[in-house]
């Protein structure tokens, strides 16, 4: 009895402390959080028209799109953003031949060591090299970019909620601050050096619009390079960099599930058979 009585007293004590010292004051001063009003204009990522080929349980990479996306990365993003977990040799997965990968790698300059003096220098890339970072270190990156460090993009689409659509929406979603904001939040103003983007976490992003006009990139395959097209292509490419095994994973999944379904049905029949002899004999 004593342990139960003790428990009841202890329980009432804990709940009493919680009620009188935390819950009650909280309830009396009840105030939902105040967020800057312009947060209401932040929007969830949207998908490009037609979505992406790799989505869904049967999705596959669209190599042409990945190659276009790589071109956009190379010509636009790479000036500020690295891709440190991806090696040039990985490009062969986008449908490039071995020779093309070698030539592509050689187009990039990577850090190296002078074999005679041992001093740091640069050399053309080899397929085994990782993509180089555009800045020597974070301090250099911050100094060159108004104190905002451009993040590495290798994992970007996995590091954001709904990442592929987020990258697409962010790139295609720059614009003047909604006039409605000015109407509802008169004091709102995008700080100097920042840019309004309704898909960014706090609607003001340090990155200047990278993809600004149609035809900024000339696609080798003749696809019309609209802003939306370029944004979608690079979003697809960055999905691949974040998870090169995405399609392989899904393709492995189906046979595994099929086999397990088969095995589970057999296990069920076997179990039923074994238990059959024990069935309740209703009188």
């Amino acid at each position: 009895m004593s342990i139960r009585l003790g428990a009841i007293i202890a329980g009432l004590g804990i709940v009493g402390i919680l009620f009188f010292w935390s819950l009650l004051p909280g309830a009396i001063n009840y105030a939902p959080p105040e967020k800057p009003d312009y947060y209401a204009f932040k929007e969830k990522p949207i998908a490009p028209e037609g979505g992406f080929s790799f989505e869904g349980p049967f999705g596959k990479w669209d190599n042409a799109q990945l190659q276009r996306g790589y071109q956009v990365y190379k010509e636009v993003c790479a000036a500020c953003h690295g891709l440190k977990f991806v090696a040039f040799r990985n490009l062969s997965e986008l449908g490039y031949s071995e020779a093309e990968v070698q030539a592509e790698a050689a187009n990039w300059t990577v850090p190296g060591i002078d074999p005679n003096t041992g001093e740091t220098t640069t050399r053309p890339g080899k397929p085994t090299d990782q993509f180089p970072s555009p800045f020597a270190n974070d301090v250099a990156a911050a100094a060159a970019n108004n104190n905002a460090i451009p993040p590495d993009l290798s994992l970007m689409t996995k590091a954001r909620k709904d990442g592929t659509n987020y990258v697409y929406s962010l790139l295609a979603g720059y614009g003047e601050a909604d006039p409605e904001i000015a109407a509802t939040v008169p004091e709102f103003e995008t700080p100097a050096g920042l840019y309004f983007n309704k898909y960014f976490s706090n609607v003001n992003i340090a990155m200047a619009p990278p993809i600004v006009i149609d035809g900024q990139v000339t696609y080798a395959d003749g696809t019309e390079a609209t802003v939306n097209q370029m944004s979608a292509d690079v979003a697809a490419f960055l999905t691949w960099t974040a998870e090169p095994t995405l399609v392989k994973r899904k393709q492995t999944g189906w046979p595994v599930l099929g086999f397990l379904l088969f095995a589970t049905i057999l296990a069920y029949l076997s179990k039923k058979q074994i238990w059959a002899g024990l069935k309740p004999k209703k009188k």
Partner: peptide, 12 residues
């Protein structure tokens, strides 16, 4: 047998 069946469901 029953656990085997349960394991199948779990693995699925």
């Amino acid at each position: 047998a029953k656990d085997g069946f349960g394991l199948g469901i779990f693995l699925l």
